[in-house]
């Protein structure tokens, strides 16, 4: 093998390795998402959902859809307070929501609330804009 073609070959391998790194996030589409509450702070599903951007952004959507903003306003720095995941999960059950939000969505909203405490407004900007165009419980002004 000549030198240039070897270079080309190793470049190709590096490129493919980098691309393989991009396909890390798994998404389950059947009804195999968590359907029971977290069993405790060490539930392995907690770490998995906290690091999954799709689940977090779905959580943000449902936060808007279920009308959480009508009392808590747009997510801002300082709200929600930093709480353990299981506490978020439990607190979402307030105001009768325990009968209204299915387990899977409670997981997702908890992951979203958790993400609010570890990212700043600049980083969330894109998702905040997306959510502004979505319906809020009984309100729908049309997309932005």
């Amino acid at each position: 093998m000549s030198l240039p073609s070897m270079r080309l070959g190793s470049g190709w391998i590096i490129g493919m390795t980098l691309l393989a790194g991009c396909s890390a996030e798994q998404r389950t589409l059947v009804a195999a998402q968590p359907t029971s509450p977290p069993t405790g702070p060490d539930d392995p599903r907690i770490a998995a959902i906290k690091g999954n951007f799709y689940q977090i952004s779905q959580g943000g959507r449902y936060f808007t859809w279920y009308g959480c903003t009508s009392c808590h306003g747009e997510p801002k720095t300082g709200w929600p307070p930093r709480l353990p995941f299981v506490t978020y999960y439990a607190r979402i059950g307030h105001k009768g929501y325990d009968r209204k939000i299915a387990a899977e969505q409670r997981w997702q909203i908890s992951a979203y609330l958790n993400s609010l405490t570890v990212t700043d407004a600049a980083k969330r900007h894109r998702q905040a804009v997306d959510q502004k165009g979505e319906p809020t419980a009984g309100q729908w002004q049309g997309p932005l």
Binding site: I101, P135, A137, G138
Partner: peptide, 20 residues
Amino acid sequence: ESASCAVCHQVRGTEARGRV
């Protein structure tokens, strides 16, 4: 009207007023 449905769905003329 008492379960989740009314949060997201509207049935005009009833208590269900969701626009999601």
